[in-house]
Design a protein around this nucleic acid. Sequence first.
DNA 1: ATAGGGTTAG
Length: 831
Amino acid sequence: MASLPFNTIPINLPFSVSSKPSSKHHDDQALNPSSTSYFHRVSSLCKNGEIKEALSLVTEMDFRNLRIGPEIYGEILQGCVYERDLCTGKQIHARILKNGDFYAKNEYIETKLVIFYAKCDALDIAEVIFTKLRVRNVYSWAAIIGVKCRIGLCEGALMGFVEMLENEIFPDNFVVPNVCKACGALQWSKFGRGVHGYVVKSGLEDCVFVASSLADMYGKCGVLDDARKVFDEIPERNVVAWNALMVGYVQNGMNEEAIRLFSDMRKEGVEPTRVTVSTCLSASANMGGIEEGKQSHAIAIVNGLELDNILGTSLLNFYCKVGLIEYAEMVFDRMVDKDVVTWNLLISGYVQQGLVEDAIYMCQLMRLEKLKYDCVTLATLMSAAARTENLNLGKEVQCYCIRHSFESDIVLASTVMDMYAKCGSIVDAKKVFDSTVEKDLILWNTLLAAYAESGLSGEALRLFYGMQLEGVPPNVITWNLIILSLLRNGEVDEAKDMFLQMQSSGIFPNLISWTTMMNGMVQNGCSEEAILFLRKMQESGLRPNAFSITVALSACANLASLHFGRSIHGYIIRNLQHSSSVSIETSLVDMYAKCGDINKAEKVFGSKLYSELPLYNAMISAYALYGNLEEAIALYRSLEGVGLKPDNITITNVLSACNHAGDINQATEIVTDMVSKHSMKPCLEHYGLMVDLLASAGETDKALRLIEEMPYKPDARMIQSLVASCNKQHKTELVDYLSKQLLESEPENSGNYVTISNAYAVEGSWDEVVKMREIMKAKGLKKKPGCSWIQIKGEEEGVHVFVANDKTHIRINEIQRILALLLYDMCSDFT
DNA sequence: ATAGGGTTAG
């Protein structure tokens, strides 16, 4: 006998000697043991993923004229499902069709084909077969609903669910989870509730898969109470059920609840998975919970969880968000499979820490690892350019975007616009806006933000109406920006009007809307109204955050209202104890100092939770306000001991303390110190203070020489110092001369009137102040953003003094110093 | 000998 193309000869061949008579029909052969043995061999090969080998066995059966039943094809198709092997599956499909209708029209085979194509995400082919099916059973339905759900055709999946019910094919515990997933993705909580009803009616509720997916669905729809109820009633909860509820909490901002659930889960002895730890890390990152996040990391290590890409990125995200960049670096180094996301996270971590150089270096390394930048990488770099106002970097990144066809990316276009705006080039931001073909709301808002930041309310309004003409309805962010643009331009009444218009257009003001209004009012000298707005905001059901509290405290400081200040401090203790921040502590110190209670300011400073520069600056500024030069200098000198380096504000505050004490020698020493010891360059404000100090001491000539020597152009404030100095020395003629010069050179600059009226105000020449006000009114000049009213009540009631913002102006300190000292005496009387 | 399912990072 000639050699066969295979060498293994099965024992029971149909033509070998057999005790059984050979059958005439295929059907009889189904009982033939040789077919059975083939089936088992095919089956085990398929389970090991060796589809090609299984297929050659089928060829062998064909050669031997053995009956190849539908179950063999089914088994191989199943193998293709395991392997997601679309190509081999199609070959099987072809063989099935070749073998005629006996196979092709077999319900089991047809269903299997639908399942196979569905699993391989080939929805079009799966649907063609599915629509031609004579019998649509629960398996084929499940496959179709599953694939639709997987590729995001959620409405289609839900329509399938409805159609099943109409045809009285009842969705089982395999169909329901996918239906729930679709409801969750669409946030169709009402549909989901209906599915929940069906689950209860058909008794599927105890299945942990069904219940978990219901809990997940409610979580995704934001109905956490119901998610919790479903979860509580699961008889045997597994880790996935716990994870699903935890994810629900995190996605709805309930981070503390998520962490609490994690601890309950550990108490019940359920082993956490990588998903659990990832979710906890996400919650910790959101709430800035350093300890919680570190604990999660420790648990991952103790439980021996593998540091895969997802767990790794969760850790990276957490450490970057809470600013522990060294830990992030350690995790990054340990990770084996890094992708673009991994790199992006660390790069953005560096940018958030202001370490732009490191970020750029990482980008270079990333390219060496043969990874390409994606839109997230580029947006991060662009935001780095915006933060550091590095126009060159921004342009370089923009060119990269153009070269690599990222131009049409609307997110990137927005970040490019933001970069140009931050670098002070609104014209270029507008150019990018104009060249973007498909504009979305975010793009409109980005340009609006550029106008608003600069107080260009006219441009902002034009854009605001323009977008509505193009059919883009404004959202709450748009309204907030319009209001900001008006407030930045000193148009308080117009802003208030817009705030009302926004509400009548059906947009509910959010925390930012209220805070923008409050902050704008404080900046424009309407501090009393700002405090009123805080009350109104609380009445509308919003809880103030750290920033709105800071704004309210600065309003109290401006009003020198210890009464309001104390009540807000009380609110902080009652409600914000656990979310206290550096900015709140700083504002408290500042508020108490300006309200005349330096003792309380010292007390707050003494019990501080943070040891950061802004707090020290506030306390130094407080001492300066009270003319306590010794304490100010002592605190300044103590900075080194706590590892802090002074910044420009520190120097300004120490210098103004010297100013109030009239101590030219100390001031000179501080300036020498900053140049030699800290290698800092004195800024214009520092020169201003020195000029002021010299001018106050009557050294007008020396002050003039310093102005000539400094590397900056003198500003109106310096001339104001000279004016004040002259005034003090009763050099009325020189004041009149300087004022006249100032007003002649820039008759339309409202700032000059502020300057001059301010000089008169400090000297108590109220008649001159009123005169200046009247000229401004007659000329129709409006005060600039940054200038504010201070109302001095009491003897001088009814007299308003125009002063510039305390951050940029020397004289307001003078006034506040007098106020604070006055109030200090009053406070001391009470105690 | 007869099918398959839910959770996660930017």
